Amino acid sequence: MSDKFLVTGATGFVGQGLIAMLKRQGAPYCAVARRTAADTAIIPSIDGKTDWQALLPGIGIVVHTAARVHLLADDTANPLAEFRKVNVEGTLNLARQAAQAGVRRFIFISSIKVHGEKNHHGLPFSADDQPRPEDAYAISKYEAEQGLLELARTSGMQVVIIRPPLVYGIGVKANFDLLMKAIIRGIPLPLGAISNRRSFVALDNLLDLIWTCAHHPAAANQVFLVSDGDDLSTPELISRLAFALKVPARLISVPVSLFRSLAYLLGKKKMSSRLCDSLLLDIDKTCRILQWYPPVTMAQALEETAKFYQSQR
């Protein structure tokens, strides 16, 4: 049975890392992206009508990382409809064609946001908790998951769902990159009084789990959470990043209620929630079923991330 991979979203943060790992492992693959890149097949858009047939012969494992990602400010008229077009219809269309082509395993990179935006009563999310998606992005991811698990029940293709929290590592962009910029520039950050706990996952740890899920027999038709197993408060994350970047952590202790109020007035309520609320993951099921443990410590991953960031400045 073929172990050739098809990787969607191959030019994204996770996709690029996955292709690099497959090269190191000597594993055959077909990389797919919506824009031109070296050794990459082009699929300009993903929806319910995308034709994947030319790319699927000989594929044994699909890793679907491509998605319409969540935005802090989404100005589309109907965000949920747009998310569903790509994340639900596009995913299930690819999965149905993959099953018909004889693909043995379909790995779907979902999101911890399927469980909600924050923990309640101090309890971490576990893989078997009842999902409670809140925004359009999370709803679309959960609906895709449900469709994939139903397809697994009615076809011979196995499905694996992975729900990561914020992924960081060498080359990370978006909010993590902005945070490193602020720390390097010595900008005082009014986050010193926050006492939350949040889980993160280094890209290398996520990639290692994907590789395990591609081959482990017990991964079939399961849902897994993934993290570094090292949970931090927002001030602790900033302090560790500052240490890795070899600069002082300029934290100011502003009362959390005041910080939230100011963020609300500035239209940054979602951002303040991500900085102030707790979002913990329990990865016991992942470790127990797969005998998998994060191979890279958070300290190692933050140091590598910071070193690369400074090398690019």
Rank of each mutant, 00 (worst) to 15 (best):
P217C: 08
G17L: 13
L225P: 02
K246P: 06
S2W: 03
S140A: 15
P133T: 01
A306E: 01
A127Y: 02
G267L: 04
R198D: 02
E89S: 14
G192Q: 06
V201Y: 04
G169I: 02
D51P: 10
G192M: 05
L18S: 10
R153M: 07
S45T: 11
I183Q: 04
A218G: 08
R153N: 12
D177R: 11
K23Y: 02
S45L: 12
R260N: 06
P131W: 01
R35I: 01
D51M: 11
F13S: 12
L71T: 12
Q158W: 08
I162G: 07
A263M: 04
L6Q: 06
L281V: 09
A301S: 07
Q146D: 10
Q97P: 02
S233K: 02
S45I: 05
F125M: 05
L262G: 11
V88I: 12
S261V: 07
A152L: 05
A218F: 09
S2K: 02
E304P: 00
V247H: 00
V7N: 05
L18K: 09
L56F: 13
P124T: 12
S126K: 15
S227W: 07
I238E: 00
A99V: 00
L166Q: 03
M271G: 04
Y168T: 03
L206D: 10
T212H: 14
F5V: 04
S273Y: 09
T286R: 04
A174T: 08
N93F: 01
K307A: 15
L71F: 05
L151C: 10
C287V: 04
S311R: 12
I210C: 09
V226Q: 03
I139N: 06
P165T: 08
F106V: 00
F125C: 04
C276I: 05
I194R: 03
A98M: 01
N205M: 00
D3E: 07
A81F: 13
K85M: 12
L22Q: 03
E117T: 13
C276T: 10
P235N: 09
L94P: 04
P131Q: 04
A41W: 11
F83W: 10
D129M: 15
P133D: 11
G192D: 02
S273P: 00
Y29L: 06
L290M: 07
K113C: 07
W292F: 13
R84S: 14
R153F: 02
I187K: 13
V159I: 15
G102L: 01
K23T: 10
G102A: 01
P44E: 08
Q310F: 02
S140N: 12
W52N: 07
T11S: 15
F176S: 02
